[in-house]
Design a protein around this nucleic acid. Sequence first.
DNA 1: GCTAGCACTCGGTAGAATCGAGTGCTAATA
DNA 2: TATTAGCACTCGATTCTACCGAGTGCTAGC
Lengths: 348, 348
Amino acid sequence: MAKRTNVVNANDDLDTRKATILEAVVTEHIDTAQPVGSSSVLQSAELDVSPATVRSEMVALEREGYLVQPHTSAGRVPTDKGYRYFVDHLEAGTLGRAQQEQIKEFFARVRGEVEDVLEQTSTLLSQLTSYTSVVVNSPHGHPTVLSVQLVNLDARHHLLVTIFSDGTVVKNSIQATFDATHSDVAEASKQLNALLIGTTLESRVQVPSRNDSVARLVRESVAGLHADQPTIDDDQVFIGGSSRVAESFDGVETVRKVLSILEQELLVVSLVEDILAKGLSVAIGSEHGFEALSSCAVIVAPVSIDGEPVGAVGLLGPTRMKYPEAMAAAEAVSQHLTRHFTVGGERG
Amino acid sequence: MAKRTNVVNANDDLDTRKATILEAVVTEHIDTAQPVGSSSVLQSAELDVSPATVRSEMVALEREGYLVQPHTSAGRVPTDKGYRYFVDHLEAGTLGRAQQEQIKEFFARVRGEVEDVLEQTSTLLSQLTSYTSVVVNSPHGHPTVLSVQLVNLDARHHLLVTIFSDGTVVKNSIQATFDATHSDVAEASKQLNALLIGTTLESRVQVPSRNDSVARLVRESVAGLHADQPTIDDDQVFIGGSSRVAESFDGVETVRKVLSILEQELLVVSLVEDILAKGLSVAIGSEHGFEALSSCAVIVAPVSIDGEPVGAVGLLGPTRMKYPEAMAAAEAVSQHLTRHFTVGGERG
DNA sequence: GCTAGCACTCGGTAGAATCGAGTGCTAATA
DNA sequence: TATTAGCACTCGATTCTACCGAGTGCTAGC
């Protein structure tokens, strides 16, 4: 993990004492949710100076934008910039033994399809951190068709099931405007296999132009499948512990806003991918562009298979979230996930 | 829709005036969330009596358990029993033109797989009512296998895709402990088809006991599929508008509790099915057994295909929810859904 | 450059005063 | 007997005041 990459302007370096004070303020405020005064800084930080000195340093830190005073004669609270400095200069977070154990056990035990694993992972991550978790499964590459199967449910309702090289399975209802016999469907299925295997959804496919039932079935099937393109291109989102939102923020209105964003999966995906793309793993307050999430921080860690990014795990909490633990948890889970999918798990 | 079935004890009949007053209190309180006093009752109800008379009636209603006073010298608030009476004696709810239009348009436009339709329906219902909606898709009957397909993703990873007569598609990762050739897999696939088509998940299947790759593949596939039984038996739940929870309740703790229940889909399913089974479509406060949801009311309407119940649509709101509108919306949507699936939609 | 000392600020809390919506009771009335 | 007008009373909500104390900024001295 080591030090986080520093993406803010370069001249944000603070001398040791200022840094110590800032760190103390952030730590304390994360803990208590209260403004932090000069004396409590001295209690938690190892500094051999008087409160007055701390105060004057805090004035400087405020001038430089790392802290704010909610009102005169109150302690200081970190700004987004303050948190940012804190996060950028964070030592490797430590994960509790119990949590490490929990992760290990989880991945040793978890089985089943990718979707199920991700969904459960999302719950795990949320339990580990007490924050809301987001797991994104991005489509990657252009999977080719491994197999197609057209079956009929009844005379006019057919189901096209397509299996892709990445393990995705897509089903399409095909509703014909004419009755088709069993053997028509079987024949169409055979032709579809010949036609589609090895192609991608982007490929142009030469469909038969005849007008018999089989050809019509084939045409409708191909059309149905290709119409699905947006669906299969969509990222899947798994959200765990949405009730944690209510714990993390106090204003009911804030809770509503955050939940509302989470509901719109599209937004969540773009949020997560934005953060990943920007190369930083933590976005604090206004750093991600989402107005409604300005009191949130988001931690994202990539998941890859064979070096290729295929998704991400994220955590959403208040700006005063427990960064070290949360970052460590996200990182650990993302690594376990990566390994899980790369080697295919022990058996899983 | 007409009058709701009355499931409470039979002697809960109130004389006309008491009923009028109770109705006025409920209506007013749903509107304002405030305790309702005798004079505001007179404003909204058509009664030619004095406030004093209303008060004495309210004392009686309180004695009989329909109303409570939050504290002396405050207005009255309905109890669960009060809401129950109100709901049981409700005239057919009216759905706004705009909403009817919205539903109609939705079902005219909606396409795709059952799951997608239900998910979108859930969102629709939530938008229509401003409450959180729950749509449950129950497995019904014992679908038989229509087709099986075993494909290999790489030498040791295979994917078993099974299509059932009800249109369900189940995929299982099969991870072999040995390398299998393409033709092994193809042969296994063929045998699996012969073996499984027409069976249900409950059927006992005679698997080959030989020890060649093909037989082992077949055995592992069947085992994998049958291990899935709980999964395919599970109801699917689609929740829409969970952010509405934050609007419906004021205490953050209540919001958290409700969200937490919603997260546990199992609970939601049992809740919905409980209510359906009890034969009533509305459960108010303590009527459903869920402690944590004691300040909620739940409205459930069944969805059936060919007369057989296959799921339900539900709404979750505060006990002081707008019953007439919400019930009308749930009923309308459930009917549209039923029709949508019965005739298969115009094309859809 | 640091610190002790001190005046000052201002949010939070507690208590008192007040307001007013709404009650319950009683005595008068139809 | 049912209804009502009248009235004293209750009690949450609101406002105001006083006050405490955490925490500040400033200044003078080390």
